[in-house]
Design a protein around this nucleic acid. Structure first.
Lengths: 121, 121
DNA sequence: TGCGAACGTTAGCGATAACTGACGGACGGG
DNA sequence: CCCGTCCGTCAGTTATCGCTAACGTTCGCA
């Protein structure tokens, strides 16, 4: 198979994106961005079941956006900013190419203007 | 309705996130990041139907990540980097708070050390 | 050792999303 | 004026996702 679509869903950026696509997961991430919280505390902050929150935590952990630490029967979670590196890279690439485009357009415009002057002359 | 869950799916960041969660849509965005391309050209770059690509383009346009320009029967698309502003903001906030945490940890450590010194003295 | 607390896990359900195929509309050339 | 091109839109299908309820597991404490 020469030209697979390369969408094996194993890419780190892809997992992070999919995890962040869910609003509740972003809220959870914001919640543990400052403080390390237990699963129960996180769940208490929402109006869904602890089960749902636990699943969200699993997804976030799988995407590398969270770290888990055990303390007795509790599980403490904290945001893992390095997990956002891929996303940041993607974003910077997009903005960089956009700036390149802008520069290219200006360049083309300037070139056109110079040709016009040449024509006048 | 006073305290709705605020998940009306109308938030700009949410739409951009959901749009970017799809790998194919990110590929499309990368494709039109440099050059302005027609819908047909974009569709030719993938192994799915033009219909699917058209729907992806609609989603991207709805998320403010694309601009559409008509030229005869063709529709030319180009990436719109400003659509990524919300995402960038979210990302920066996350990283900033992470840095805050690091600074706070260092601070706590220093304070603890000073208390130790005080105890020695 | 027994018991309750704190979580993760599984099965099942409803909703959403991505894809295909068929159709309709707008534009331009002969 | 008709015809081919280019493209969006509309049903319909299948897969995926988020949620709930019930169950299993691990740990601390009396």
């Amino acid at each position: 198979m020469p030209s697979r679509a390369a969408a094996a869903a194993g890419e780190p950026l892809d997992e992070a994106m999919r995890a962040l696509a869910e609003p509740r997961r972003r809220a959870i991430l914001r919640l543990v961005a400052h403080d390390e919280l237990a699963a129960g505390e996180i769940a208490a902050a929402f109006e869904v079941t602890r089960t749902a929150v636990s699943q969200h935590l699993t997804v976030l952990k799988g995407a590398g956006l969270l770290t888990e630490r055990r303390d007795g029967t509790r599980r403490l979670y904290r945001a893992r900013p390095e997990g956002l590196a891929g996303l940041r890279e993607f974003l910077d690439d997009m903005w960089a190419s956009a700036l390149d485009d802008a520069r290219r357009l200006v360049e083309a415009d300037r070139a056109a203007r110079e040709r016009s002057e040449e024509e006048i002359r």
